[in-house]
Write a protein that binds this DNA or RNA. Structure first.
Lengths: 240, 240
DNA sequence: ATAAATGTACTGTGATCACATATATAAGAT
DNA sequence: ATCTTATATATGTGATCACAGTACATTTAT
């Protein structure tokens, strides 16, 4: 029978689709901090009514992935250094906890997935001109593959909220950095990025050998080094 | 001119007000797990249009404080034992972290506020018939007074999401418990509750003396004992 | 008497219109 | 030329209507 072959095609709500799209835009850094977005224009761009866009944006505002400025303008939030430090601190704790919970629950499928992602990451890293956006995308998938092994959906949701907030920062830095620095500095930029991100090697290794404490330590190193890199690059707002 | 005398009346959005109201209803346990709510009826009850109620409920659904069941019915979620255990585990970690961060930032004002709340809590506890709802309310204020001292608004928001989910469970147990048990068992019920909640004594004491590790330990004790009490009371869903 | 069909009253979702307000543009006066 | 004022444009918010479902009771046919 056909009925059992085709996808149930249970159509999500339009609001949900719009939310997912905007979320992806934010996490992949296609929107830069401070950028405004209007309900009607994005509704036109997405070929939907304003209604779904309203609900999606309101949800993102609730998650602090967007904010309403003076005059009720909707924009992607700027981030101060202290705010960034706070999130980094929370991440080190929460994602460390997730790693700790994930380790004893690791099975073959998890390890295969992680290994594949790690290989893809190193492949991209070996290219002459590594695609920063792609690196960050794989980076995200790698982290969440580990956290998902903890079998704690609620914990995962909390971590996602944090990533949603730092997503724009990560990629904005990456993109604006390429333009801001002259050619010479760019390679330096990349060198530092590579050095920062390559901590994953130790991280993944620790995960695979079941070294829980080692994995936690490597993860915190990863998070804090990346944060230090972002802060020193000067893309954040100084005022508090 | 009158204009400068009257309250600025900068009215928040109606959606925001409705959200706050529903949030309060949920956290104070006025709605029981499984209870449905319709947009139009609650809109009528609140004397507003369905529009604000829609946005408020959607936000609560996003925070998993409400859920959409089959037929797209909106209801306050049931909670399985494993889900409850997960949240308890996350809470012990996250609120422990908040306490750790709060301790070195404690000043006189914080300590005064905490002391006042602690006194109110013990007063209510000393009554013949302690008001369970009030106890839980003070309990919540006490915890958040401490967490707020951490000066980490983002961390606070994450913890609030967790409390929003367990709020209904806490109070539902308290209310249905009084009816479910016969008179004799009720006093036993209360005795256990008192014993469980009175861990606060040690908790507050540790906070005031700046004993960070002691405070963390007392807090985890508090959370885990309360959780054990809830689980053993049998109000949670067994199926997973 | 039982079961199938139908109707009715709900549900959330999406589109469209009305409104108050803020921002930018342009016209006017000094 | 510059500052003020007025108009126009665009913004989010809220209300209302239309629609596609679902649950349940009533009715009808077997």
């Amino acid at each position: 029978m056909i009925h059992e072959l085709v996808t149930p095609l249970q159509r999500q709500t339009l609001s949900g689709d719009v939310y997912e799209q905007l979320k992806e835009l934010l996490m992949s850094g296609r929107m830069m901090p401070g950028q405004q977005l209007s309900l009607r224009s994005t509704a036109d761009a997405l070929k939907v009514s304003v209604m779904p866009v309203r609900e999606a944006t309101q949800r993102l505002v609730a998650e602090k992935a967007l904010e309403i400025g003076p005059g009720r303008v909707i924009r992607v939030p700027m981030m101060t250094v202290s705010q960034f430090r706070e999130i980094t601190s929370i991440r080190a704790n929460l994602e460390g906890f997730a790693t700790e919970q994930a380790c004893p629950r690791m099975n073959e499928r998890h390890l295969d997935e992680i290994e594949t992602l790690n290989a893809a990451f190193n492949d991209e890293l070996g290219q002459d001109n590594p695609d920063g956006t792609r690196l960050i995308s794989i980076n995200k998938d790698l982290h969440f593959a580990i956290y998902r092994a903890s079998e704690m959906p609620m914990l995962l949701q909390l971590i996602e909220i944090l990533w949603l907030r730092i997503g724009p920062i990560l990629n904005y830095d990456l993109r604006s950095g390429s333009k801001r620095l002259e050619a010479r500095a760019i390679s330096d930029h990349h060198t530092r990025l590579v050095k920062t991100l390559s901590h994953h090697g130790k991280f993944v290794k620790a995960i695979k050998t079941g070294d829980m404490e080692g994995a936690k330590a490597a993860l915190k190193n990863d998070i804090e080094n990346a944060a230090e890199f972002i802060i020193s690059s000067g893309t954040l707002v100084i005022s508090d």
